[in-house]
Simulated assay, not measured.
Amino acid sequence: MDERKVSRSAVIAAPAEKIFAIIADPRRHPDIDGSAMVRGNLYGPERLEAGSTFGMSMRLLGIPYRTRNRVVEYEPDRRIAWRHFGPHRWRWELEPVDENTTRVTETFDYSHAGPYAFLYRLVGYPSRNARAIEASLQRLKQLLEA
């Protein structure tokens, strides 16, 4: 795997369409966020698609801030990725195992950071985001399998 991508996967007992409906709804992002940074949806469509923009209320180290995100990859019920002002992306990929089970992979992709990629490692994004991705997948799994 590319050293500038951090990915984790989980198998969830739910069809891809049901999982994608949650991931593609920015109002649900606080429900599945494992980083404890996403606070709420500020604006945007109920269901994201290619080119959609949406705003999120965030908090880092106790400091609130807002992001404006744009969907940059989209394949219905299979893949969605967005980014904000930075060159990194958050990507979700869904691979059906059978009609009621799906392998879900979340990736923090900073391969577009060019010569600034060392800054991501310097501030600890790879390991911090790996932990947050694992927690997000667990939250998504619990939400869908409850």
Results as ranks from 00 to 15, higher is better:
Tyr120Thr: 09
Asn69Ala: 08
Ala113Ser: 10
Ser35Cys: 05
Pro96Arg: 09
Ala135Gly: 01
Pro115Gln: 09
His112Leu: 13
Phe20His: 01
Lys141Gly: 05
Ile23Gln: 01
Val11Gly: 05
Asp109His: 07
Leu137Asn: 00
Ala146Phe: 02
Arg39Asp: 02
His84Val: 07
Arg28Thr: 07
Ala135Pro: 00
Ala81Phe: 05
Arg79Glu: 12
Pro26Arg: 00
Leu60Ala: 11
Arg78Pro: 12
Asp31Cys: 12
Pro126Cys: 14
Leu94Glu: 01
Arg121Glu: 15
Arg4Gln: 13
Ser127Met: 09
Pro87Leu: 11
Ala10Val: 09
Arg139Gln: 10
Glu145Tyr: 02
Tyr74Val: 08
Tyr125Leu: 15
Ile63Arg: 06
Ala135Ile: 02
Arg128Gly: 12
Leu140Arg: 02
Ser52Asp: 03
Arg8Leu: 14
Asp33Tyr: 11
Leu48Pro: 03
Arg39Phe: 03
Pro30Asp: 13
Pro87Ser: 14
Asp98Phe: 04
Pro115His: 07
Gly51Thr: 09
Trp92Val: 15
Ala132Arg: 00
Tyr65Trp: 15
Val11Lys: 10
Met1Gly: 15
Ser9Tyr: 09
Gly114Met: 12
Glu106Gly: 12
Ser111Cys: 09
Pro45Leu: 02
Glu73Gln: 14
Ala81Cys: 06
Pro30Asn: 12
Glu3Arg: 12
Gly62Lys: 06
Tyr110Ser: 04
Gly44Lys: 06
Gly40Ile: 09
Arg103Gly: 06
Val38Lys: 01
Gly124Ile: 14
Arg27Asn: 04
Pro30Thr: 14
Gly62Trp: 04
Pro126Lys: 15
Ser35Trp: 03
Leu48Phe: 09
Lys18Tyr: 09
Arg4Met: 11
Pro30His: 14
Val6Leu: 10
Pro76Trp: 06
Tyr125Asp: 13
Ile12Gly: 00
Lys18Ser: 14
Met37Ala: 15
Met37Thr: 15
Ser127Cys: 05
Asp109Met: 12
Arg83Cys: 10
Val71Met: 04
Pro15Ala: 03
Arg8Thr: 14
Leu42Ala: 07
His88Leu: 07
Glu46Lys: 01
Pro96His: 11
Leu143His: 04
Ala24His: 00
Tyr43Pro: 07
Trp92Gly: 10
Arg8Tyr: 11
Ser7Met: 05
Glu17Val: 08
Pro96Ala: 13
Lys141Tyr: 06
His112Ser: 07
Val71Lys: 01
Ala16Tyr: 02
Ala24Gly: 00
Pro76Leu: 08
Met58Phe: 09
Phe108Met: 08
Ala132Phe: 00
Leu144Tyr: 01
Asp98Ala: 10
Tyr65Met: 10
Thr101Ile: 04
Met37Tyr: 10
Glu95Ser: 10
Ile19Ala: 02
Arg131Ile: 12
Thr53Lys: 15
Ser57His: 09
Leu119Glu: 06
Ser136Ala: 05
Ala113Val: 03
Gly34Leu: 10
Phe118Ser: 08
His29Arg: 06
Ala10Pro: 01
Met37Cys: 12
Leu143Gln: 04
Pro76Tyr: 07
Asn129Ala: 04
Gly124Phe: 15
Lys5Gly: 02
Glu73Leu: 15
His88Gln: 15
Val72Asp: 03
Glu95Tyr: 01
Ser9Ala: 15
Pro126Met: 15
Ala117Phe: 11
Lys141Phe: 08
Phe108Trp: 06
Thr102Gln: 03
Glu49Pro: 05
Asn100Ile: 11
Val71Asn: 01
Glu106Ala: 09
Pro96Lys: 10
Ser127Ile: 13
Gly34Ser: 12
Tyr43Phe: 04
Thr101Tyr: 03
Phe20Pro: 05
